[in-house]
Write a protein that binds this DNA or RNA. Structure first.
Lengths: 124, 124
DNA sequence: CACTTAAGGTTACATTTGTAATCTATAATA
DNA sequence: TATTATAGATTACAAATGTAACCTTAAGTG
């Protein structure tokens, strides 16, 4: 039911790459991270291993040496879970309170709200 | 400037009580928590101590034995920081993406959106 | 006043997390 | 084929976190 995965910050970085790339080998991950990040290869390997242990990633062996990593968690579901945790943690589970806070702090523009209204209208 | 406090989940529970009560002694905190939570007094003491170390709580001695705990972090500021962290972590810092997700998942009703629109209108 | 209790302070300890070194086995090459 | 480089697996380790035991001192009670 509730695919609840406990993914840490460091692990999330990897997941985000896997979600975007659909599947990825270690070197590609390294390349993507190396842009502005010099994390050690071993670190990434550990993170991948932990994600596999948690069931959040599957690995597929290609031949004897190559491995490809694939996300085993649906990004949408994960985001929804995280949203819920966040709301519960800080806003007693109420979306309204969060939004109110955003509006009060001018984090949302009138235009954005209008766009969302339109989306809702055209949907049902 | 950016009152960045690293408050953990367990600590946050205490902060939320302090924010609500404005100030509180240990026993009151225990009472409030005991409703459906049998956490050990020692645990709470440790959490309070750590919050004090972090500068998130101040303690005031009343006489020789009594102590009253007072939040030293502004709840609003804290929430704003947490919002930002959350957005950065999962939505690349974009409020829009988060909202879009909420709308897509029917977490926001048309009425709620309208209410927010009205708020924005009446503000400026 | 001696004794027990209660309030707060100090220390401890297992688990999780970020980070990385080390080991093992495969593959490429001299 | 012996040697080296490389991919992945295993082990390590400090800091953070949740949880709680233990210690010290003030306060109430016989």
């Amino acid at each position: 039911m509730s695919d609840k995965y406990d993914i840490t910050d460091a692990e999330l970085e990897i997941m985000q790459i896997l979600w975007k790339e659909k599947k990825c080998d270690l070197n590609t991950i390294m390349e993507i991270l190396n842009t502005d990040n010099e994390k050690n290869k071993n670190t990434i390997k550990t993170l991948l291993r932990r994600l596999i242990l948690k069931g959040a990633v599957k690995s597929k062996k290609i031949g004897l040496k190559e491995t490809v990593y694939v996300p085993a968690v649906n990004e949408e579901k994960f985001l929804n879970n995280e949203n819920e945790s966040f709301l519960n943690r800080l806003y007693n589970g109420s979306t309204d309170k969060l939004l109110l806070n955003f509006v009060e702090n001018k984090k949302i523009s009138k235009e954005e709200l209008q766009k969302l209204m339109d989306m809702l209208e055209s949907e049902d």
